[in-house]
């Protein structure tokens, strides 16, 4: 019942022994227009990390949908924000979700934060042929809890399309609208009162919503926040104790107080 070729707790090696490919790399010369473009970001606030994203997916100049979830729970202490081609990014999220849970259950301990960060880098590297051809590019953000320090501390990581990983000190952003809000986040961190890192949850949610509204004013591929159409951002909070999703109803309440 044991497979000698299996690396203990490694779901990708289990997939390989079963001849199941996690990410397909074949590319058709006549590849269709991809759905992409996004604004996702994460910043430290007083209780942990807030990660948020708009909900629009576009293909060329066509709005495909305004209901995409780009911030995903990977496990009880990790979040992924996807920017780029959803087809590839969703598959990466699914691989990570299964891999992290498989490791935790089989090894009877959770995967460490550095290993989680590298697992995503490995998937990005596996996707290199697609990235180099300009099809299926993914530039994600990752947030996880570092349990090697006391007290445990949430951390933000960002990647380049080839899989290099970098730890963000205060904030990180990705997607077509990210340039706009990086400036705003940097300004707020230097001159704001309160600074994002000092904000309470209510302030952090208001700040996140305003960032998305700003991004959508400069980037047509970012959906922003539109209470009239009942379109809100996806906002999740990562604390050392776990993940909390801020519902549309909660966002609505906070926005009414703007």
């Amino acid at each position: 019942m044991n497979n000698a070729n299996l690396i203990a707790g490694d779901f990708l090696s289990l997939l390989a022994t079963q001849k199941v490919s996690a990410l397909k790399t074949e590319v058709s010369a006549s590849a269709p227009v991809q759905t992409q473009a996004t604004t996702v970001f994460a910043f430290h606030f007083s209780e942990g990390i807030l990660m948020a994203g708009d909900r629009r997916a576009t293909a060329g100049n066509v709005i495909v949908t305004d209901r995409v979830e780009k911030i995903m729970d990977i496990d009880a202490s990790s979040l992924l924000a996807i920017a780029g081609t959803p087809a590839t990014a969703f598959e990466m999220a699914r691989v990570l979700q299964t891999s992290f849970e498989y490791y935790r259950r089989s090894q009877l301990q959770p995967l460490s934060l550095p290993a989680k960060v590298r697992a995503l880098a490995r998937l990005l590297r596996d996707n290199l042929p697609m990235t180099m051809q300009g099809v299926g590019i993914v530039v994600p953000l990752f947030a996880g809890v570092d349990h090697t320090v006391s007290p445990a501390k949430p951390q933000i990581y960002f990647y380049d399309p080839l899989g290099a990983q970098f730890q963000a000190v205060g904030h990180a952003a990705s997607g077509s609208g990210s340039q706009t809000i990086r400036s705003v986040m940097s300004f707020q961190e230097h001159y704001g009162n309160p600074k994002p890192s000092e904000m309470n949850l209510a302030d952090a949610i208001r700040f996140a919503s305003r960032l998305l509204i700003t991004a959508s004013e400069f980037d047509s591929a970012t959906g922003g926040v539109n209470p009239a159409s009942e379109i809100y951002a996806t906002i999740k909070v990562l604390r050392s104790t776990g993940v909390e999703t801020i519902s549309d109803a909660q966002q609505k309440e906070f926005l009414q107080k703007l």
Binding site: M1, N2, N3, L14, V20, V95, T98, Y102, S106
Partner: peptide
């Protein structure tokens, strides 16, 4: 442990595929 691993492998492969 062998049976547990076999069950885990089968369950996670099923969930993934």
């Amino acid at each position: 442990e062998k049976i547990r691993q076999a069950a885990l492998d089968a369950a996670h492969m099923e969930a993934f595929t």
